[in-house]
Amino acid sequence: MPHPTDRYEDDDLDDLPDTHPPQPVRYAEQALLGALLLDPHRLAEIGSLDAEHFSNYTHGTLFAAMRTVPPPDPEQHRTGPAWLNTVLNAACPEVPGLTASYLHTLIQLCPWPKHAATYARIIRADHARRMLAAHAERLAQAATDATLPNPAATTLAQADTLARFLEGLAGQFAPHPGSLPRTPLPTPPPRDTSEEALDEERFLLASATAHPAELKEMRWLLPEDFALPLHGALWQCLTALTHRGEPVDSVTVVWEAQHRGLLNTVAPADLMTLVSTPVGSPEYWGEKVIERALLARAHAIATRITAYTDDPANTPHQMITGSRRALADLHALRARRQQAASPTRQPIPRRARTPSDPRAGPPPRTAAPPVRATR
């Protein structure tokens, strides 16, 4: 049942001030329950609906009780409250504060019992919004939880779960014109610019300067994958030199950086130091960088989907369409990451991976870190 903290809420008592005005779905829930209490045979008309779809625990419990107890004889139901009492007795163990007067209030709050199917559709739509928000929250948690043993795998698994959920929703809500959300896109969460993350990018740039031939096999890495824009711009310098077939070393990289206006943000001497201390192989550090980029993209997508669900103007179809398009961005980055880890790539020979080889992987702890570039 949803919202267990509301299980003892007495909806019939309005003595305390309500700082949270009822949402439209609250009225739809009351109207549906009133319609079913008045005409129980309409349970067969409302389609697939469960107690978990209700935003209010009391309402969900009452609906479950209606589903549980046998339907009344239509003639007897019109002349007496026996079935209402049966429903009340079935629900009271879960919601002790529920009263017979509230059931009669629900009947009075129903505008038209014949609209029960529409009320149920409103409840399903609001439930889809809440569930989509919960999936987005789990995606954000997976992308930002540094304690996970394999955060990328966990994040991608959660993204797949979200994609399957959206696939299921797509078949429940009809499309309509104006299918894209009009919600302004939120500012993406800040990238991880910890010293460890920036060191990985620095080591990549330095090792790529020392071994430029390997850049031809690293087309899967893009400048936007870097947490620091300066590092992404320097990656562009390296790939441009490689693409033109020009010599690549610390001097030529600084010269290319000058033509791209990067020396306005970093001193030439600091840039020389940055690309002159290779440790490990470019592929190793590149995979580290793209994995962090994948986690950052997943977090940004979760934030974007949450913005869609927080905007009450969005219909279910708009939320579904916007969320699926957002996930497409993650799928594209995922494909590039899979290309980076593809076994068809030529690996570095095992005999070259020795502790004394500067391309053997993570740097020894005694290695002096490169000079930090000005952000």
Rank of each mutant, 00 (worst) to 15 (best):
P4H: 06
D10N: 14
D11H: 13
P22Q: 01
Q23V: 06
Q23Y: 02
P24Y: 04
L32F: 03
L33S: 08
L38E: 14
S48R: 12
A51H: 08
Q76N: 09
A91R: 03
E94T: 12
P96V: 10
L98T: 02
L98W: 01
L103S: 02
L103R: 02
I107A: 09
H115E: 13
R124A: 10
A125W: 00
D126A: 08
A128Q: 08
A128F: 13
M131T: 12
L132Y: 01
A134I: 00
H135L: 02
D145Y: 03
N150R: 05
T155F: 07
T161I: 01
T161M: 05
F165H: 14
E167K: 06
A174Y: 04
P175S: 10
G178V: 07
S179R: 09
T183E: 04
T193L: 14
E200A: 14
E201Q: 10
L204N: 00
A206K: 00
L215W: 00
F226S: 07
L228D: 14
L230N: 06
H243D: 05
H243T: 07
R244P: 01
E246C: 07
V248C: 11
V253M: 05
Q258D: 15
G261M: 09
A269Y: 02
D270Q: 14
P278G: 01
V279K: 00
V279C: 06
L294E: 12
R297L: 15
A298Y: 08
T306C: 01
T306P: 00
T309D: 04
T315H: 06
T315Q: 10
Q318G: 09
G322D: 09
R325Y: 06
A328L: 09
A328T: 08
D329W: 06
H331S: 11
R336C: 11
R337L: 13
R345W: 07
Q346I: 03
P347V: 04
R351E: 15
S356A: 10
D357T: 00
G361Y: 01
